[in-house]
Amino acid sequence: MGKSKYTVTLTDDQRSFLEALVHRGKSSASTIRHAYILLHADKPDPEVAELVRCHPLSVFNVRKAFVTQGLDAALHRKLRDESPTPRKLDGAGEARLIQIACSKPPDGRSRWTLQLLADRLVELEIVDTISVKTVERTLKKNALQPHTKKQWVIPPAENGNFVAAMEDVLEVYQRPFDPENPVICMDEQPIQLHAEVREPIPAQPGHPKKQDYEYRRNGVACGFMFTEPLGLWRRIAISETRTKKDWAHQVQHLLEVDYPDAEKVILVCDNLNTHVPGAFYETFPPEKARNLLNRLEIHHTPKHGSWLNIAEIELSVLTRQCLNRRIPTIEALRVETATWNRNRNQAQKGVDWQLTTSDARRKLKRLYPMILES
């Protein structure tokens, strides 16, 4: 595109007009840019493009418009046809597309793709032809993304047991800070131990870190998370197993080491079959088990209500900040989690829980078997 086949020859009047247009600066940016192109049209297209800071094809198009249609066409953008192209999908067509996108995908497919949706619209004779771009724009306009999904613990509707446990936990969260009776949330999660089979290549300027997809499984550990939201404190403990005795020993540590002076610890945890009072009697002599339970007040979150446990939020942060990598041994895992734990406690990070019982009754009405309208 060095020597253009469209040669621009300006008359004196045209050049004077263009120079005045540029110097006044009152026209649109595109008109002034096209005027600059015409004023420098004696130069090769790449040189003009670099001077005007546009694509060489733009220079070519301005030249062509000037030679074939005249000065006015070269300066101004082409006006749209007064009769616009009719929409591919009218209101009814958009409604059918949305219905299809929200339905079960075809057999043999895990999800709807843009091409599958376009093909289905043609197959159902809703349109003769349609591009995937048109389908994409329509879905975007209606905030639909068939290729994505969000996993969530869905609570049961109209379930008295669920709302009873939920409101019990929410009542605990609304209690004021009391160092003599701290509210502690507890949760646990399995942690996979993975070792590298080949040494990763460190990152360098212009190149990300490279890690072989192959790894060696080294078993599973369990992380026990205890956190006091109002006290801005948490403790993560790593265990080889997650039995009743493991849980009982962790709670013993909470009572005798973490909070030895507390009159009673209010413990919020999920209703896993290991989180039961009997675990203390299966782990300790009866006198000790009774003494521990006397200093403990347990509140269980409902089934399918793990989102009510603040300790789950802390575990999520731990996973994102510390565990999202390959850790080969339980010893290394303990070192890494202990460092994370210490730094987060020093930073005084907390959780600002906002949901109250009145909020739940208003926002989660479908969970209640019976609720009175305000």
Rank of each mutant, 00 (worst) to 15 (best):
E240C: 08
D261V: 09
P229A: 08
F224S: 02
F224A: 02
Y215Q: 12
H253L: 11
E297V: 01
K264M: 10
E263K: 15
C222P: 00
H275K: 11
Q252D: 09
C222Y: 15
L267P: 03
R217K: 03
N273D: 10
W247M: 01
P260W: 11
E287N: 04
D270R: 13
F284R: 01
W233M: 06
R234I: 00
N294Q: 03
L296K: 04
Y259A: 01
D270G: 11
Q250A: 07
I266S: 15
R242H: 07
K245W: 07
D261Q: 10
T243W: 03
I238C: 10
E287T: 14
L232W: 00
F226A: 14
E282D: 13
L254D: 05
G219F: 04
R290Q: 14
H299E: 03
V251I: 08
V276P: 09
L255W: 09
I236F: 10
H253G: 06
Y281V: 04
W247P: 00
E263V: 13
M225L: 08
V268E: 04
G278F: 09
N218A: 12
D261L: 08
E256A: 05
E297K: 04
W247Y: 08
R216Y: 01
F284Q: 05
F226L: 05
D258E: 12
G219T: 14
G223S: 12
H299R: 11
H300A: 06
D270W: 10
P285L: 05
E240H: 13
E256Q: 05
F280K: 12
E228C: 11
I266H: 15
H299S: 13
G231D: 10
T274A: 08
G278A: 15
A289S: 13
P286W: 04
D261I: 13
E287I: 06
W233H: 03
H249Q: 15
R216N: 03
M225V: 06
D246A: 09
L254E: 12
N273I: 05
V265Y: 06
Y281K: 11
L255E: 03
C269I: 15
R290L: 10
Y259R: 07
G278T: 15
R234H: 14
E256I: 00
A279T: 09
K244P: 08
F280G: 14
E297H: 06
T241W: 09
C222V: 08
D261A: 15
R242P: 05
R242W: 07
V257G: 12
A221F: 03
D261R: 06
P286A: 11
R295H: 02
C222E: 11
W247H: 00
F280I: 14
I236N: 10
L267I: 02
E228T: 03
K264P: 02
W247S: 01
H299Q: 06
V276T: 07
K264A: 13
P285H: 02
N218S: 14
F284P: 01
E263L: 15
C222S: 11
